[in-house]
Amino acid sequence: MTWPAGLAEELADVYRDLHRHPELSGHEDRTASVVEDALRPLGYEVTTRVGGTGVLGVLRRGDGPVVMLRADMDALPVAEKTGLPYAATGPLMHACGHDMHTTCLIGAATLLADMSWKGTLNVVFQPAEELAAGATAMIDDGLFERFPKPSVVLGQHVAPLPAGFVGHGEGPLMASSDSAEIRIRGRGGHGSRPEATVDPVLIAASTVVRLQSIVSREVPPSEVAVLTVGRMQAGTKENIIPDEAELGVNIRTYSAAVRDRVRAAVERIVRAEAAAGGAPEPEITWGVSAPLLVSDPDATRRTVAAFAEHFGTERLIPMPTVAASEDVGNFGAAAGVPTVFWFWGGLEPERVFAAFQSGDLGSLPSNHSPEFAPLIEPTLTTGVETLTTAALAWLGR
Rank of each mutant, 00 (worst) to 15 (best):
Ser255Leu: 12
Leu18Gly: 03
Glu223Leu: 09
Ala205Gly: 15
Gln126Phe: 02
Ala257Trp: 07
Lys237Pro: 04
Gly287Leu: 06
Gly329Gln: 12
Leu154Cys: 12
Ala245Gly: 07
Ser151Val: 04
Asp13Tyr: 00
Thr303Trp: 09
Glu218Met: 12
Thr2His: 13
Ala234Lys: 11
Ala128Lys: 08
Ala108Asp: 01
Trp394Arg: 13
Leu202His: 10
Val224Ile: 12
Val34Gln: 00
Phe165Asn: 05
Asp13His: 08
Glu23Met: 10
Leu247His: 08
Leu202Ser: 13
Pro91Arg: 13
Glu309Met: 04
Asp37Val: 12
Leu92His: 14
Asp74Leu: 11
Glu129Tyr: 08
Thr31Gln: 11
Ala355Thr: 02
Thr386Gly: 03
Gly312Met: 10
Gly54Met: 03
Leu392Ala: 04
Val34Asp: 00
Pro349Phe: 05
Ala333Met: 12
Gly383Asn: 08
Arg210Met: 11
Ala71Gln: 09
Pro220Met: 03
Glu371Ile: 05
Asp17Ala: 04
Pro365Ser: 02
Leu247Phe: 09
Gly83Ala: 11
Asp72Thr: 11
Asn367Gly: 06
Gly155Arg: 05
Ser177Met: 13
Glu23Arg: 10
Ile106Cys: 01
Leu227Asp: 07
Thr300Met: 12
His27Ile: 04
Ala95Pro: 11
Val50Leu: 15
Pro85Trp: 03
Pro162Val: 11
Glu145Met: 07
Tyr44Gln: 00
Asp72Leu: 06
Ser213Trp: 05
Pro85Phe: 05
Leu105Glu: 10
Pro41Leu: 01
Ser366Gly: 10
Val166His: 08
Leu131Thr: 15
His27Glu: 13
Arg271Ile: 09
Arg252Lys: 01
Leu11Met: 01
Leu18Asn: 03
Met232Ile: 15
Leu39Asn: 03
Gly52Ile: 07
Lys81Tyr: 01
Leu380Asn: 00
Thr136Lys: 15
Thr53Arg: 15
Glu244Tyr: 04
Thr313Phe: 04
Ala38Glu: 02
Val294Lys: 04
Phe372Met: 03
Ala196Tyr: 05
Thr388Ser: 13
Phe331Gly: 01
Asn250Val: 14
Val78Phe: 03
Leu42Met: 00
Gln126Arg: 06
Leu42Ile: 00
Phe353Lys: 13
Val266His: 04
Gly189Tyr: 11
Pro282Asn: 07
Ala32Arg: 00
Arg40Gly: 00
His19Arg: 09
Gly51Tyr: 03
Pro374Gly: 02
Ala137Arg: 14
Thr300Gly: 13
Pro172Glu: 07
His168Ile: 07
Thr48Lys: 02
Trp286Tyr: 14
Cys96Thr: 06
Ile106Gln: 02
Phe372Tyr: 15
Pro160Gly: 00
Asp37Pro: 04
Ser213Lys: 11
Ala279Tyr: 14
Gly164Trp: 02
Asn330Cys: 11
Ser192Lys: 07
Ala335Asp: 10
Gln126Asn: 07
Gly359Thr: 11
Thr303Arg: 10
Thr382Gln: 00
Arg315Lys: 15
Ala8Arg: 14
